[in-house]
Every structure is written in structure tokens, then in C-alpha cells.
Design a binder for these strands. Structure first.
Lengths: 337, 337
DNA sequence: TTGTATGCGTTATCAG
DNA sequence: CTGATAACGCATACAA
């Protein structure tokens, strides 16, 4: 039925090992033999059986991208993954991981323990889950983390410089005259959220702008969170003249809330986000934001993983990429009182 | 090194076949033996080698979702895929397919011909590519299409009723007093685009609203297309009082253009989309749109594929799901002249 | 209810 | 440069 390496060998009148050599581009094959084998392969339409190769090499040639939930950030990650996926020899598996579902745990556990994947890229906030960490350690499967919580040890990771990005944006807002800047914060165990808050605080301090804890609004980094926080926060006695969303999603929620309250942006209040997700350039006004280089981060993470799998020492195992401001229409100078 | 079925058999003092039976939940195993084997498995930490199983069964236990590019629609598809992926025994591979890149072709070709995947879900507009079709036919790999161009033959597909959805929305706009309704059309070879245009035309006809070819604006179904078309179209002598975007993306582009031109929505002009993508509820005003049940479509498509792979006859092989209107703030009654 | 023997299609070893 | 042969770990007829 299916044509195997034996058939090719018979057709080309050589041993299967020689066919194998040709298929795998090994050296020490006479040119004449190589051509004869190539012909045989074409004539018979031979395609190597990947399962056999995997079995004998104990490799799956699959890497897994682990994602927590399906949000806009995750979509951006997946976009890039798709984009590069066809370029290398590994297949890319996507897997969601919800620690609360035991089925999800089992699935992932099987994936790793049965060696169905050679390595993983872990996206936040999967890395905070103890079960996953235990699994990764005990199974000794290689992995690279994206923006992980814990950056001690020798585990490879790639991340954007959230602290620096938040600092830059806060500084910019201050330079535009804003003194009362609300910050939409995210989940407490999310490293990204923590760093961005610190960056915000650091800039305030540097410019001697008093920090007001009442201006740190919990948003969970999503649309609804940003919306609710803004609705609530703008009702305070002394509302801010700028809102800095720790994530684009939250900032877009804030934008929506302000529209609903008929508070004009940026005339009355400025709004900024963090991420520079595709959505941020489609709002009106365009969302000023911090470019968090997701695409490069994903690319680097996959590169490192592939290096490790190939026993190459990666150029760098721990990468922190700088963020940049992207100013659009949603931020302006502080309005006169 | 690694513990195999033999080790378990030795430990449990039985044959490997018996271990195999226990592992695969086959009948005809004495309860006592089963327990002994279970103990051995636990004691030794045995995990079946998936590659060996795959080799001997000639199955990969992997299904592939084929996507064309990385847009918001694709993100919605992936979200759902992720959401259900951990529930079944197959691993999910995502693969992009750009017919113009030969590398992309090679990758896909290898994936299918090397039987690295047992089946595929094809999303639009991948299905219009002749190379892919040829590949799918000759390789005899099972697949299910989502919203395909060609619906003849016996190839399983799942789609939303684009014609009906567009009809409903156009009707609604007419009933709100609109007579001049622009339609943002998509790529000509995109079945979705064609059907939505027909639905639009049919409603106009039904209500005896004259069709004006100048009101069909090319948008490519994306943000930029919608933006450009609107900028251009609104400059005409007799501009429309409503814009019906054949896709949410295009409609969001239109919304942006109108904001930029300071034409108030919905006071001066109504805007509607098609898709009900997550983005459509985050614009201001909220985008009135047609709910295209992507999630259900994906779910059904995967179900059908799994049925086929398990040699079960699917409940239905060709499914057309109705669309529903979702009215939000962006559409209102026609303004007085 | 249990076991034996064989094959799946490669890659790897080591001798020619 | 080439080839015979042994793994790889499991499933499955076929026996017992």
C-alpha cells in the first residue's frame, strides 16, 4: 500500500541505509547513487513516515505554545506564531491551560509526559501555576517563558521592559502637564502588572508628582475592568486628567466609559494604554500606547527553544526588550482648570 | 532509561499484551490482574510512548486547523479552538497557509503527505486555492470546511447563513427609514462576501428600494478597506444615510473614517457590521452587527471531523446556521433631510 | 482470560 | 562509500 524506504531501496538497487542517507542529506554518498535514489523516490512518490522517525529518535518534532485564555493579547501571540510556523521543521501545537479544569491539567500532563512535544513556550500567566511548574521541572522538558513572574534561576525567558515602558509613558503625561494620572492596574500576581505599576510610580517620584493610592484603579487588564474602574473613578471628588491603562484592553474600556459619560478625549482627559495591540489603532481617537514588542518576543522565544532542542547554545537565554511610546490622538496636554 | 510496556509486564508478572489491555481499557481482563498492572504502572511511572502507538496504528492523533492570515476573524476561530481543544484526544496543530509562499505549500504538503495530521479544518479563504484542493483530494485526508466557496459534492462543511443575515440587516435599515444604504463588499472570490451582497440586494428588491451600484464599495473586508472606502464614498454627491459593512472590520474602519470626518454616528449616518466579533462591542458607539456564530461553527466542524476520523457517521455533514441581528448604538433611524 | 510472535518504518551501529 | 542487522515501543493476529 504505502511506499516505504524498502521499496525505494529495491527500486534503486541499494540498501535502505543508503536511501536513508539520501533522504537525510548525509554525506558519504556517491553522486551517482544519490541520483539513482532520488529518481526512485520521485518515481515511487515516497514520503518518509514521520512516526517511525519519531519513534526511533525519541523526538516529536512538535513544540507547544501554552496559552491561558483567549484574549486580544493571546491573539497577537498566535498571529505571530502562525506567521513563523511554516518556516521551520517543527509543528506547532497550541494548547490552552486552565489550572482549574482537571481535564486541562490531564491533557497538558499527557502532552508532556508522553513526550508528544519536544518543548514549550509558556505565555503569561500560565507560569504562575505550581502544578505546571512541578510538571515542567520533573519532566525535564525544555521550555522558554514569555514575560514570566519569576526571573531567578537559569530558565530562559523573553520579555518586554514593562517598567521602562510605563515609566516613559508616565513621564510623557507629566511633561504634557498632567499631575493627576490614574493607573489601571491588573492582576496582582501578574508580573507585567507589577512592573508597569512600578514604572508609573518611579516616574511620578522622579518628577516629584505626589503619588495618590486612590488613583490606582483595579482593572484586571480587560475591557470590562477598565470600563468599570473608569465609571467609578471618574465620580471621585478630584478626578484625574489622564488615565494610563496598564493594558490596551483596559484603556479601551476606559475610552468607552468616557464616551458614555460624554467626557471628551483628549480635550478633558487623556487616555493611554500599554501593548500596542492591533485594536489600539482602531479606536477613536487612536489610542496612545506603549509598544510592547509581542512579535519579536514570540520570535525570540521560539528561536531560543529551537536552539536548545538542537543542542545549540542560544545567543542569549534571557532577553529583555525595550518598549517604545506610540502617541496617537487619545492623549494631549492637560486642560486648563 | 525510560520505562516501557515490557518493564510493566515484568513487574506485574504478566505479558505485555495484558498490560496493553489494561492501558487501553479493553475487556477480558480479570479484576485482580488489572489491579496488579495498575499498581505496576503507578510504581514504575509508566507512560505509553505515543510515537510507537502512532507508528503501529498509522494514526497521528493530530488535527490541523488551516488558517489563511492572522486577522480578527481568525482570532475568533482560534479562541474557540483553544477553548475546546483540551477536551478530546486529538492534539491541535495550527497552520497558516499562504499559497504565494512555496515554503508554506511545502510545509502543508509535508504535513498531509507524511500523515502528520489525521484530518483538517479548512477556514476561508484557503478553500479557494487549487493547489490545496488537489492536495486534499489526492491525499484522501479527511477534512471539513468552514464557509467554503464551493458547496457542491459531498464535502462536509459548516457555515453561517450569510445571505439571510445580510438580508435581515438590510431590511432592518430599510425599516428604520434608510433608502440609500452603502454596502462594504469584500474579496470577489470570497463566498461570504458574495452571499452577503446578495442578501443585501434581495432585501432592497423586496422593499422596492432602488439598487445603486455606486453604493457598493470595495473594502476587502478589513479596517483599512472600510476606512478608505468610506472616505471616498462619503464625498459623493448623494451620500448614503447608512453604511452596512460586510464585515465588522470594515465597519470599524468606516466608523473611524466618519469620526475623523466629524460625521456623527448614528445621528447623521448609521453604521452596521457583520460578524459580531468581540471588537464590535468595544467601539463607540457599539457596532450594530449580524451575529455570525463562529463559535458554534468551529465546534460543529471539529465534531464532524472527529466523527469521520472515528468512522462514525456525523449527524449532519453540511450545516448552515442562521444569523441574528445584534443592534447596538451605531444604527438609528434615518435623519430628516 | 492470557500469552507469543510478528510487524510498523525508520535510524544507528559497525563491519565491509 | 555501502550494507546487513539490530533496535525503538507498541498493537494485533492467532494461539492457548
Amino acid at each position: 500500500m504505502t511506499v516505504t524506504i524498502k521499496d525505494v531501496a529495491a527500486y534503486a538497487q541499494c540498501s535502505i541505509k543508503t536511501v536513508s542517507r539520501v533522504v537525510n542529506d548525509e554525506s558519504y554518498v556517491a553522486e551517482a547513487t544519490r541520483l539513482r535514489v532520488q529518481d526512485a523516490i520521485n518515481a515511487l512518490g515516497y514520503v518518509p513516515n514521520i512516526s517511525a522517525r519519531r519513534l526511533v529518535q525519541s523526538k516529536s518534532y512538535v513544540i507547544c505554545i501554552l496559552l491561558h485564555e483567549a484574549g486580544f493579547y493571546q491573539s497577537a501571540v498566535l498571529s505571530k506564531v502562525m506567521d513563523i510556523g511554516y518556516q521551520f521543521d517543527y509543528d506547532i501545537l497550541i494548547q490552552s491551560y486552565f489550572p482549574v479544569h482537571s481535564r486541562s491539567k490531564n491533557k497538558l500532563s499527557g502532552l508532556i509526559r508522553e513526550r508528544r512535544v519536544d518543548g514549550l513556550v509558556i505565555t503569561p500567566p500560565c507560569d504562575v501555576d505550581p502544578f505546571l511548574n512541578e510538571l515542567l521541572i520533573t519532566s525535564r522538558v525544555p521550555y522558554v517563558q514569555i514575560t514570566p513572574l519569576n526571573r531567578t534561576g537559569n530558565i530562559p525567558y523573553v520579555t518586554g521592559d514593562d517598567y521602562q515602558g510605563a515609566y516613559l509613558m508616565t513621564e510623557r503625561l507629566i511633561l504634557m502637564g498632567h499631575w493627576r494620572i490614574a493607573f489601571l492596574s491588573g492582576p496582582r500576581n501578574h508580573r507585567t502588572s507589577i512592573d508597569r505599576l512600578y514604572g508609573y510610580k518611579a516616574a511620578l517620584e522622579m518628577y516629584r508628582v505626589p503619588f495618590d493610592a486612590d488613583l490606582v484603579w483595579d482593572s484586571l487588564f480587560n475591557f470590562d475592568g477598565g470600563y468599570n474602574a473608569t465609571k467609578l473613578g471618574m465620580a471621585m471628588d478630584n478626578p484625574p486628567t489622564a488615565i494610563f491603562g496598564g493594558s490596551d484592553e483596559a484603556a479601551i474600556g476606559a475610552l468607552y466609559a468616557l464616551q458614555e459619560m460624554k467626557i471628551p478625549v483628549p480635550q478633558k482627559i487623556s487616555v493611554c494604554g500599554f501593548g500596542n495591540l492591533p485594536q489600539s489603532q482602531q479606536t477613536w481617537p487612536g489610542l496612545s500606547t506603549v509598544d510592547h514588542p509581542v512579535e519579536i518576543i514570540v520570535e525570540r522565544a521560539v528561536e531560543i527553544l529551537l536552539d536548545i532542542l538542537a543542542n545549540r547554545e542560544p545567543a542569549s537565554r534571557q532577553i529583555v526588550l525595550p518598549c517604545q511610546l506610540v502617541m496617537r490622538g487619545s492623549a494631549g496636554t492637560k486642560p486648563p482648570n
